[in-house]
Design a protein around this nucleic acid. Structure first.
Lengths: 206, 206, 206, 206
DNA sequence: AATGAATGAGTATTCATTCAT
DNA sequence: TATGAATGAATACTCATTCAT
């Protein structure tokens, strides 16, 4: 029983190690420009071992993306849900997004710029997941904003469009930050986005 | 002389034909999943001929991206420059961007989602150009906004950040539109963006 | 037109050259122990060229078998059909079989011993063809013998079984000849088989 | 001592279990399409354990073939030796051969069709054994027939060729039976072969 | 100029075998 | 003794590029 547990633990450790290295390498070079040998080498395993943890290159890639994305969405939602009022929720949304991006620059370089787009049919499920996740995330944001509208704090605009706008502001700041190296912390842009977005959206009681 | 001219004209025609077909195919499948034979076939030329117009696959790809982007930035600037006051300029910026995107969905699917990101070192120059173009475009937007700030029409915020914000709003609307099929015209979102952005940015004379 | 013809001719020549070399190598080592590089090398083409003539290793193998078998059955039938009476037909059947075997020892080593048996599902069609060809060949022999039965020259035994028996005698002689090196000509066994088959083995007292 | 005996007994049991499973799987898929993992799984042992019973895949395969063949030849000879006169001996030869084939269809499918032929050099010894066994078997048959010749019961033909002929008749019947599924018992062909072989095919006009 | 056959370097994947536990 | 995770050599196949015609 104990042995089984250790085996299990080791398996997960090894799997994670591979995923971490794969993330770095894929992020740096993109899917097609990476070889299994490269990943094997970087993660300290043999080529063959990679296939004990993942069904193949496609699977390794999609797994890496999938698990990281789940982590991201999970972290963001957890933090947002802990906040109570609307303003605080939006602040947390931006802050948690920025934090994840800052802590996972490599991965986000891959994801934000969408290197995930033109994968072969075999990865169709990944594309679907990405689209679904994105849509779900927008809905999550939308629901927050809807409450603001209902409570008459926000203007009665199309909530989906508002969510997309907020997401776009976050995203564009991140892209800008990632493209221009050696700038100030990404988080420093939080205030700016809050400012722009709330002014654009808050119902100004005369 | 005349003959030379015809040759020249033919050469350009052929070159364009190839670029157009290449654009469609690359947009549909991404760089790595396309073969030169495929492009040759689609454009009605032999494989060998492709190499008389372009140095290789990388060059064909980067040329296609580069020329299309130049076209896009050119169109947008031309229209914006024709506008006179700030609001009109911003309207044109959004409108011209949306128009190009609607008229070039395939290409933008490739570009917006960033399939262009992790190309091999050989394409380093493309990456540089993309980054430069993007930066230049932000500067272009920035300069418009700066005038608004100077004229005290806009709040004295960080102009670069404002430009990035506006760009982000445009981009996120486009992505949303591209991901959700069979929706209303992209252009219908123009008003919304104008609304959000200007409220967030205009200096509200008390 | 002429050019097309030459291309066509060259294509066939190259294809044949590859098939001939492949036959030798496959015969010597069996399907799985042969590499495409080996065949490419032996036939004087590059690896890539092999794939311009054949869809893959499986296809190259099955094509080689198929075409050679068709040749064999064709040669045998042609000669048998030229004969007129029953005895002569049987003589030709044995003779033509032996001749093909002697002239194609390598190939027959592969075929007679049945290395063709356990091929992957992809080659299911080959297996079917082999079985069909064999069955058809037995039927061909059977039809000859049936006439002999009808004309009361042969005993009214099960014609299918008789065909199988004759085929077995031919086959076993061939196997014996192939296994024991440096013996007399295979054809020298023709008389013996004719004798055994036509008259039987018992010494007819009286 | 007793413990040792039990160990020994267990070892043999395990070894046999593996051989039996290996036989089934090899027979179904051929040597190259079978993995050690597959055999390990089917026989209920770990991969590592297989290597305690056999030196490797080659060895496992050749051992399986060798032992089964020894069993076959042993069974046939034993039964033939129990018969007394020539006719009875030949009957037993055919009958025992057919019985083994019927009881070991899987294995014979592998062997009769000769999947054993083109094994790598490492298995050269197996090929040799197969050839030797075959030759020895023919000699065994030959010796029976020689007595028949000496006693003037059989015609003074080449005894080796007669043996090969008889073997060929048996073999071809078996192949035919194995290729055509769902037929009558193989043994039902015994009489026919006896008839053909002993009396011949020509209708002996009195 | 135009063609497309020929090239061969590059890579994902398999699986017999080993050996630390 | 038994296990099965780790290994890495081996190989079919692809496709950008060249060059003889």
């Amino acid at each position: 029983m104990e042995k089984l547990a250790r085996k299990e633990r080791e398996f997960r450790m090894h799997r994670m190690e591979i995923l971490e290295q794969a993330e770095k390498i894929f992020a740096a070079k993109g899917f097609h420009n990476v070889t299994m040998a490269e990943i094997a080498n970087a993660s300290g395993f043999s080529i063959g071992s990679l296939y004990q943890f993942f069904e193949g290159k496609d699977n390794l890639y999609t797994t890496m993306i999938t698990e990281k994305l789940d982590l991201m969405y999970g972290q963001i939602r957890e933090k947002v849900n802990m906040a109570e009022d609307l303003t605080e929720k939006i602040t947390m949304l931006i802050g948690a997004s920025f934090q994840f991006i800052e802590e996972n620059t490599d991965f986000c370089g891959l994801f934000l710029r969408g290197e995930t787009a033109p994968l072969s049919e075999l990865m169709a499920s990944l594309r679907q997941k990405l689209a679904d996740d994105h849509s779900q995330h927008l809905t999550f944001i939308e629901n927050i904003l809807k409450k603001g509208i209902k409570s008459r704090y926000l203007r009665p605009l199309n909530s989906r469009a508002m969510a997309a706008a907020l997401f776009g502001l976050i995203r564009s700041s991140a892209i800008d930050w990632m493209l221009l190296p050696a700038e100030e912390s990404l988080n420093s842009k939080k205030e700016f986005i809050m400012d722009i977005f709330l002014r654009g959206v808050i119902k100004h009681e005369k």
